[in-house]
Write a protein that binds this DNA or RNA. Sequence first.
DNA 1: ATTTGTTATTATGTTCTACATAAGTATTAA
DNA 2: TTAATACTTATGTAGAACATAATAACAAAT
Lengths: 231, 231
Amino acid sequence: MGLESYQIEKVESVTMADIVEKRLLDYFKKNAFKPGDAIPKELELAEALEVSRNVVREALSRLKMLGMVESRKKRGMVLSEPDIFGGFERVLDPLILEQRTLQDLFELRMVLEMGLADLIFRRKTDDDVAELERIVQKSINQNKASFKVKHEIAFHGKLYAMTGNATIMRFQNLLLPIFEYVVSEEEKLHGIPPISNVGHGDLVEIIKNGTPQEFKEAMRIHLSPHFDRLS
Amino acid sequence: MGLESYQIEKVESVTMADIVEKRLLDYFKKNAFKPGDAIPKELELAEALEVSRNVVREALSRLKMLGMVESRKKRGMVLSEPDIFGGFERVLDPLILEQRTLQDLFELRMVLEMGLADLIFRRKTDDDVAELERIVQKSINQNKASFKVKHEIAFHGKLYAMTGNATIMRFQNLLLPIFEYVVSEEEKLHGIPPISNVGHGDLVEIIKNGTPQEFKEAMRIHLSPHFDRLS
DNA sequence: ATTTGTTATTATGTTCTACATAAGTATTAA
DNA sequence: TTAATACTTATGTAGAACATAATAACAAAT
């Protein structure tokens, strides 16, 4: 019987910086720190935690990356509203992520797209619809591949924008390169997918005069070339 | 006319650690580093970038937090598959995030929920349906608030699990505390929302014998008490 | 010959000291 | 009162030193 069957777990060394980082996060939560609140000085933290200033700085450096802590010379440091997708953004590299994860993110974007309908219908304005029509209009008689990609981004981006939800919009913008990467990898393997029976023009027409239910079904058909290739 | 109308942008001091962090990320991407690849030693990096080892370590500490870099004594450092939601998780504190962001995340989860239908129907198994029924069955005649919350989590969590998408599942698990926070804040202001006309039992029945379209509509109605309170 | 023990080496982990820098604070001069 | 000046302070950066664990090379032992 091999060693592996004992499921011996590898010891991952926890560093001081890991511990201090966690302690700081707990400290902020426990004391209900809010953005704008000043936090103790590096030396005070180092002394209280009984580690060197260096370790404290490594932990703080992490929180600074997330936008959670801001520092200015002499003034000290303050807690601040973090960039919720900051860490996410740095990590979204198709070459680094597992195939499985890329596939998951691909699906995630499709799930989002399908779920947008009710928000869009709740918040759409005439101006929005007019701009969508403009975007579609511009794409007619354009066949270059580079233009098509740009058009895809413009159209779907506008749909997200219409939700009035900046977070969702940011999220989808981050997901986009992954989506395109997965699509292009798919195409290398299985060729260009058939064009959907429902185009952007149809979607706009439904937004204008249709119902959320119709839109959901139309979007499903619009995405079906991708959807049908899922495992 | 006030100064603010000039949109004077505050100078955020860029530190060496910020620069080195970016350089490292670019370096990995440019050279197509993959998980498992060894990366240069701290001292080599420090020398090449002409900064102190300290600065390099602060930047590396950030990447370690994201799971992108792992280090062992003597062996050096290797690139590794990052935890895509690691940074996200650390930052998801209702007390720190803006109200607007919390609201956005609340909506985001609802969008996800609405968009799940096609994935669920594509991948559902008889076992899944049986477990859903079991979960619903257990909830009958239970009225304690604490149990209700647990039941909510179990039921909707199972729906996410049925997508077979670990990333989506993780994402929703992270979003859940935010969702609950927003709901409870809403309830403080406007009281308990009316109970939906579509319950979990109805949803299961549709998953069993219905169509994705029916499920989408049912889910919309199920969530409508929350949805109707959106701005 | 395979295993076991010893030693040397090396890259990260941690600490300490020192100084640079920017931004407040107090003091002084006009 | 205002403006110029020096002082103070907290972060930013650098460099050296040592601790520690993992590895390699080699020697000893059965």
